[in-house]
Amino acid sequence: MADTLTNHVSARGLRAPRFSLRQREAIEAWLFVSPTVVGFLLFFLGPLVAVVYFSLTEWNLLTQQSTFVGIDNYVDALSRNPDFWHVLRNSFVFALGLVPLNMSLALMLALALSRPFRGVVFFRTIFFAPVVTSAVAWAIVWKFLLQGEAGAVNQLLAVVGIDGPNWLREPDWAMVAVIVTRVIKMVGLNMILYIAALQAIPRDYEAAARLEGASNWQIFRMVIWPLLAPTTLVIFVITMIGSFKVFDHIYLMTGGGPENGTLVLAFYIYEQGFKFFNVGYASALAMIMFVIVLALTVVQMILRRRDMQ
């Protein structure tokens, strides 16, 4: 009824009833999505196609000369340039360090803060505060705090009798430092997502399990954790992608050093493309990054689907 009415009204508006109702709706819908589609084609899909082409050229950013070289850049990265594997390793170390640390801390905080008690808002506010802070500010401040002997962190450690390392000057410690400071910066987001998921779990489930004499751990393992699975997947994907694209944090805290110990893929792409003018090589690296992120996401989704069945 209403549909015919609209059709009638707007048909009169258009004067010529050339389109069926369904066609009209489709045209209107495409008008609605047109800004998004145009932007998507221009700033996303176009560039994504372009980066494939770029990756097959040798292209100097400064002289602006490019020649087609086929898969040379990929061969270069995978077999000739020793830096690449080192960078890839760093990226995976960063992700493997960050994702579990972030997710387990987020879950623990969420479990502690999902039920009301005095101070719960206070703590949530505090743990979330770094999320709204700019990564630049965060990195700048931590860079100061983590200085050698004069740094506040080491001064604090000295109080409890620990002789802290020169955090940002030793490759392994620098990696630890960027991972941990990044986790502190971002864990609040995952904590909130977990809290929302925990609060959506009906209390009866837990009560029922308790009646059957389940321990806290058993309740968590058998009831809560499986129910959190969808959230865990979302959090995992977000956190993992986030850990591969980390740039500002590295750029400001370590600049990829010391001894290339924190040189990760995103930073390496920037360096190759804009500092050494190797547009082609940087594009090949970008493609590799794209494939890695895509593959990890797909694998996780397949695993999850199998899990459900």
Partner: peptide, 15 residues
């Protein structure tokens, strides 16, 4: 630019 970048990690090891 490349030379300095190649040097940097090695110089880090020096210090």
């Amino acid at each position: 630019p490349q030379i300095l970048a190649a040097m940097a990690p090695k110089v880090d090891a020096l210090w």
